Amino acid sequence: MNDVNADAVNLQDWVGRTEEASDQAYPTPPRALAATLDQVGTDYAVGTPLPELWHWLYFLPMAPGREIGPDGHPKRGGFLPPIALERRMWASGRYVFRDHLRVGDVLHKTSEITKVAEKDGKTGRMVFVTVRHTVRSGRGLAVEEEQDIVYLPMPKTFTPPPPTKAPENPSWSEPAAIDPVLLFRFSALTFNGHRIHYDLPYAKDTEKYPGLVLHGPLQALLLLEAAKRHAPDRVPSSYSFRAVHPVFGHDRVTLMGVARDDGGVDLFTVNGDGHVGMQATVAWAANDQSR
């Protein structure tokens, strides 16, 4: 695949495009993720419920090496529009959990580009692409997902957004053990070749970050897993997250939860300076509901 000439296309032509994919929920990926997260007690035998968000271990974009761009992502074009901005990040996501996926299930995913929006930001032009995914098993619809991808120009210097202070009195907080091995293993498990997560010279010299970048999806996953540990009898019914400030592999990271009046929990990753990296919200299914 060659890069598409982004100047010759109308990005709105990509709205409405769809893509279908099938996979099977083999047990090795969740076993490997559990080991990566230092979790014990579940062997993920066939029939075991797959934790929420762990469908990210499947439907991996397996572009061959010759189709990889300089940042480690697949080259532009194809299903996603060929946006002529060098940086690409997963900015936010929204989820509704309808049913448990189970190890051994044959899975089917339908993806549709629902929106392409251009904006002007502090660092210049930005383009947001929203993709809606639905994941089904043989029992029916399991996960509804909306994913927001943002494209940005390559910066000349590190210019982070203004910091957001962490909650002063969280309902609970706990440290998260972050190191380069965790970043590398998560990249490998999700087949994410983006070099900012494992290639320190590239992250610093090309994308101008002060260190390796902690994945947005990994932060979202760590927050949801922590929320479930603090509410072991509850089942998530919906979840949303939004990245507000980069977090790095050398940061001292804390996970925080703040109880909401509606029964849900607001969640935050917080760096060593007390600044929020990601904020999220989980809503629980009613006690008489099961999946």
Rank of each mutant, 00 (worst) to 15 (best):
M126I: 12
G69V: 05
R132M: 10
A63L: 01
G140Q: 01
Y95L: 13
G140M: 00
V106E: 15
H100Y: 15
T123H: 09
D148L: 11
I68P: 00
G121S: 13
H133V: 03
R94G: 05
V103P: 07
R88C: 03
V129I: 09
D99F: 02
G121D: 05
G69A: 04
L85K: 06
P70T: 08
T114C: 08
F128I: 06
Q147S: 02
G124T: 02
E146F: 03
M89I: 13
D120I: 13
T134V: 12
M89E: 11
V96E: 15
D71G: 13
P61F: 11
T110G: 14
L107N: 09
K122V: 13
R125P: 06
M89S: 10
V131Y: 10
T130I: 03
V131D: 09
H100G: 00
R98N: 10
G69H: 02
G69Q: 02
R98Y: 11
P64K: 08
G69S: 07
T110Q: 15
I113C: 04
S92W: 11
V127N: 01
L141G: 00
G77K: 11
S137I: 00
V135H: 10
W90G: 05
H73F: 04
P81W: 08
D105N: 14
H73K: 09
V143Y: 01
P81F: 05
V131F: 12
V106H: 12
R136M: 09
E67W: 03
K109S: 13
Y95A: 02
G69W: 03
K119V: 03
D105T: 13
G104Q: 11
R102N: 14
M89K: 07
R139M: 10
T114Y: 12
W90R: 08
H133N: 07
A117I: 08
L107G: 10
H73N: 05
R136E: 13
D71N: 14
L80S: 11
V106M: 12
A91D: 00
F97K: 06
K119Q: 12
D148F: 02
A117T: 15
G77M: 14
E144H: 02
G77D: 14
A117G: 00
R98F: 11
G138W: 05
I83M: 10
V143G: 05
T110Y: 14
K119A: 06
D148P: 00
G140V: 01
G78S: 14
G69L: 07
R125T: 13
I113E: 06
E144T: 04
V143Q: 04
G124D: 04
P61G: 09
V150P: 01
V106N: 14
E145T: 00
A117H: 12
D71L: 08
G138P: 05
V150A: 03
E118V: 07
R132D: 14
L85H: 01
P82N: 14
V135F: 03
A63R: 03
L141I: 11
F97M: 05
K115W: 07
R139K: 09
L107W: 15
D105M: 14
A142E: 02
R139D: 08
S92E: 13
L80W: 07
V143I: 09
G93K: 11
E145G: 02
R102I: 03
Y95C: 11
Y151F: 06
F128L: 07
H108L: 12
H100I: 04
V106W: 08
